[in-house]
Amino acid sequence: MTTRILLVEDDPVSRAFLGAAAEALPAIVDVAGTCAAAMDCAMHGAHDLWLIDANLPDDTGAALLSRLRARFPATPALAHTASEHPDDHAALLAAGFIEVLVKPIAVLDLQTAICRTLGFDRAIPDGGARLCANLPDWDDAAALAALKGEQAHVLALRGLFLDDLALQRETVVEALRNGDPQRAQRSLHMLRASCGFVGAAKLGDAVRALESEPQSTLALGRFQAAVDALLSQDRIAATAAATART
């Protein structure tokens, strides 16, 4: 599967640098210089990641993210800015960006941030960093192996897993926000086991990362993005099934 990134940056030099660094992963990079152009680009093709400048000619990066999320709620986003002020970074994180990158940023640092966000192995400084392992949302082979090849059991367990996933996410997030890491760890431990049974590969990886770093905003963002991706697929499948019945 080819990774596709939407890069939103109005400065031509920064746009060329960031675009070339992302393409070297490798990835397909669509570029836009304004919020309006970014929205048009997003509507003409799905993206795995948005890389958005904090300040654009026709609005802010935070405002653009809000409009994009109204259409595509599960797509992760990174912000990039020349500001080093903590308040600016906090505002971008509060707006929904997983991480804030400060320009100028080194090629490897940018590539590694992209890899972290998408759940890939880290970029490797070998003269051309690469995405080593694109984890799927669902690993059917792993699920079938765990359940002795019974496809019906896999589908049934995935249904139960998805039914409970939003509540499990809420439990983890609430526990971390309330300063109760032990409760969060208990929920994450159970969720990791469930991910293994149903083959939720990307979420399982995000759960392990959050278990290792429960105070990490990035790890929490990856966890929530992985949950959103699965729940979004479930909603689409439910809508399609309901339409087929009518």
Rank of each mutant, 00 (worst) to 15 (best):
T117N: 10
G19Q: 00
P104Q: 08
R71K: 13
A74G: 15
T75S: 01
C115N: 03
A95H: 08
F120S: 11
I28Y: 11
L25R: 04
R69Y: 10
A79P: 00
A94W: 05
R15S: 06
C35H: 11
E23I: 00
A106R: 13
L108D: 13
P26H: 08
A16H: 00
T75W: 04
W50S: 05
D48G: 07
P73W: 09
A79M: 07
A37P: 09
L108N: 13
N55C: 01
P26W: 11
D30C: 09
P26F: 00
R71I: 14
R69E: 03
L78Y: 07
A22L: 10
A90R: 12
A74Q: 15
T117F: 09
R71G: 12
W50A: 08
D109W: 00
D87A: 12
D88M: 03
A37G: 13
T117E: 02
I114Y: 09
A94D: 07
L93T: 13
A27P: 00
D88Q: 08
A27F: 01
A82K: 01
D53N: 10
I52A: 07
V31A: 12
T60L: 05
F17P: 02
A113R: 02
A77L: 07
L101C: 13
V100R: 06
P57E: 02
K103G: 02
T60Y: 08
A54P: 11
M39L: 15
L56K: 09
A91S: 07
A106L: 08
A36F: 13
A38I: 01
L68D: 10
F72N: 15
R116Y: 05
R15E: 05
A46Y: 01
V107F: 14
T81K: 09
A90P: 07
D53L: 09
D58N: 09
P57K: 05
P86N: 04
T60C: 08
G45W: 00
L56G: 02
A74K: 15
W50Q: 05
L51G: 07
L78Q: 04
A82R: 03
L78K: 02
A27Q: 06
F17G: 01
D40H: 15
A62V: 11
L93W: 09
L101K: 07
I98V: 09
N55G: 05
D88G: 08
P104F: 06
V31C: 11
V29L: 01
L25H: 03
F72P: 02
W50F: 07
L49F: 06
L64K: 02
A113G: 06
A91N: 08
F120R: 15
A91G: 06
S14Q: 14
R116T: 07
A20Y: 12
R67G: 08
I52K: 04
A20D: 14
T112F: 09
A94R: 10
A38N: 05
L110T: 00
